[in-house]
Design a protein around this nucleic acid. Structure first.
Lengths: 211, 211
DNA sequence: TAGCTTAATGATCGATCGATGAACAAGATC
DNA sequence: GATCTTGTTCATCGATCGATCATTAAGCTA
C-alpha cells in the first residue's frame, strides 16, 4: 500500500470541500442508486455513509428529504424519452414494423435499467405524480400516434384499440419488471423477443412485422 | 347517536377479549389492507389504531414485525392459484383459445386485486422469496403446459417460445399494474381485452382464438 | 358472586429517524 | 504567511420506531 494521502491517488474518493454544484450532483447520483436499491425509506445516514460524508451535509444541499427525493425523480425522469421518437413513429417513408422495432429498441435501452425500473416502481407505489405524468406523456406523444399509424397501415378488417397498444407495451415492459423487480431470468438481449411481439401484434392487423 | 355501549350495537367494533385465533386472523386481515396501502414499512402503531387495539397487543400475537409480514405473505399467496387450472390447460377436448380465455378470466379475477397487486409488488422490491416461488410455480404448472398446448395446436410454421408466453402474460398482468400501482384508467371489465390479446397471440401461430 | 385465567392495556426502553446549529478547517485571496 | 469565505463536521434535539413487561380487567367456572 502506498501513502494514502498522495494527492493524485485520491482524485475520486476522500475529496473534501467540493464545489457546491459538483457536491449536489454527487449526492443525487448516489441517491438514485441508493433509493433504487433499498427504497425511498432509505435513511439519510446510510446514504451519507456511501458518499463518505456526514449526514448533516446532505441537509445543507436539500432542505428536506422529500426535496432530495424530488431531485432523484427529476434525474431518473430525464433522458428517458427521446424527442426524436414522435417523428420516428410518424415517418411513413419507413414500414410501421421497422419504426416500432427501432422505437422499442431505443426505448428498451433506456428503461431496462435497474435504477429507473425500481425507482419508477417505488414512486408508483408511493402515489407520486411522476408516474402519471410520465405515462400520460408517453401515451399522448408516442402510443396514440403509434395507434394511428398502425390503423393506417392495417387492412381495416379489425381495427386496433388503445388497449391493444397497452397490451403490446405491457408485454415488452414486463421483461424489465421480471428482471429488475422480481430478479428472474430474462433474455440478455431482448430485441429478438421485442421484434417477435411486434410482428405478432402487427400480423393480427394484416401488417408485416420486423421479424 | 344512540348509547354506544349497547351490547348488540357493537357486534363488529369495540369488542375486547377475542379468542386468540379470531384476534390473530383479524390482525392479519387488517395488516393485508394496511401494508398494501402504505407499504411494508407501515408502523405497528398505525396498524393498531386501525384495529382499535393497542400497539403492544400485536406483539402478543407476532413476536416480530417480520413474522407479521410473513403471515401477510402467506395470506395473499393463498387462493391465488387454483388447483383446477393445470387440468383446464391440458383439456384437449376444448379449443386452446377457449382454455386460455377461461384460465385468464379466472386468473384475472384473482390477481386484479388491489391488495394482492400492491403487496406482491412491495415484496418483490424488498427481495422476498415469495415472488420467485410464486412465479416459478406459475411457470412450471401453468405457463409451460400452456406453451406445450399452443405448440400442439399450432400450424408448426412458427413455433412459440416461453418468452412469447411471458409476453402475452405480461401484457395481461400489465392491466392490473396500471390500475393498482400507477392508478391509471383501465377497462372496467378486462375480459374483452384479454380475449383480444389471446386471439392475436394464437392467430400468429395459425390458431383460432376466443374473440 | 367470589375466584381464577388470560386477553388487553399502559408505561417505557433503547435505537434510529429527519433536521438544526455551533464549531471547525480547507482553500482561495491579498 | 495572515486573513477571510464557506464547505464540512460534530453534537444534539424532538419525534417515532419495534419491542418488553408489569398491571388491569373481561369473562368463564365453581
Amino acid at each position: 500500500m502506498e501513502a494514502a494521502s498522495s494527492r493524485v491517488a485520491r482524485v475520486e474518493i476522500d475529496r473534501r470541500r467540493l464545489p457546491p454544484e459538483e457536491r449536489q450532483q454527487q449526492i443525487v447520483d448516489e441517491a438514485v442508486r441508493f433509493f433504487a436499491e433499498v427504497g425511498l425509506d432509505g435513511t439519510s445516514r446510510e446514504l451519507a455513509n456511501r458518499l463518505g460524508v456526514t449526514q448533516s451535509l446532505i441537509f445543507k444541499y436539500f432542505e428536506t428529504k422529500q426535496d432530495l427525493i424530488e431531485a432523484v425523480y427529476g434525474r431518473v425522469y430525464l433522458e428517458r424519452i427521446s424527442p426524436d421518437w414522435p417523428a420516428l413513429i410518424r415517418d411513413r417513408s419507413r414500414p410501421i414494423g421497422e419504426r416500432m422495432s427501432i422505437f422499442y429498441r431505443d426505448y428498451g435501452s433506456r428503461i431496462f435499467d435497474h435504477d429507473w425500473m425500481r425507482i419508477f416502481m417505488f414512486s408508483g407505489l408511493a402515489g407520486a405524480e411522476l408516474n402519471k405524468r410520465y405515462l400520460n406523456h408517453l401515451r399522448q406523444t408516442l402510443l396514440e400516434p403509434m395507434l394511428e399509424e398502425v390503423r393506417q397501415a392495417s387492412d381495416r378488417r379489425t381495427v386496433p384499440t388503445m388497449e391493444d397498444i397497452w397490451s403490446l407495451h405491457g408485454g415488452i415492459v414486463y421483461i424489465g419488471i421480471r428482471q429488475h423487480i422480481y430478479r428472474m431470468p430474462t433474455p440478455d438481449e431482448p430485441q429478438h423477443e421485442i421484434d417477435r411481439a411486434i410482428t405478432r401484434f402487427l400480423g393480427s392487423f394484416g401488417i408485416k412485422g420486423p421479424a
